[in-house]
Amino acid sequence: MGKTVTIVRNVMEANERRAGKLKDYFAEKGILCLNLMSSPGAGKTSLLERTLADLKGEFKMAVIEGDLQTDNDARRVAATGAQAVQVNTEGGCHLDSSMIEDAIAVLDMDGMDILFIENVGNLVCPAEFNLGEDHKVSLLSVTEGDDKPEKYPLMFHLSSVMLLNKTDLLPYVDFSLEAASAHAKKLNKDIEIFPVACRTGEGLAAWYDWLRSARAAKKQA
């Protein structure tokens, strides 16, 4: 008969500890860090391409690109002139904070205003791993169906912002902006919702205003 030793240790403690260190680092440097999450193909990289190009005169920005394989996204983002570093998870379903630590080490963080982390395309796992970010931002495209917040609640529950992308396709799909918004608000009454079309640029002004105010709030803190 063995002895029982009480442990009580959080299984996620290693990630939480590193995420806490990253949060301190971003606070010290006054960098706004955003963790961008969506399913594959919802338009995360297109949103970043637009944002980086449109705001490049205003902010110094960089992107950490998470994908299972390839550096396609880092190359697309780098074409805007912003710094980009690709993290390949080699099959992993999410980014964790050790990957962010490694990525930051190769970026020039001096004078950085906004760091975007483009998480692995997946509506489930990325939400469970804190990366030291100020806000989680989720992106849902109208071709995916308006019940996604209800089906994948954690991500929308934890996000400060939900962007509804590809609104230029609304005439061709059965997607209700109202229903998607209502589902998300049910999970998180404070979530900010911006309908956008990254292809045409429609609606992005509201997203940019949100970025400006989040950046200003971080700088003051």
Binding site: K3, T4, T6, I7, V8, N10, V11, M12
Partner: peptide, 11 residues
Amino acid sequence: ELYIEEIEADI
């Protein structure tokens, strides 16, 4: 929560 509560072992 997700945590390890206890370990039983020969000590």
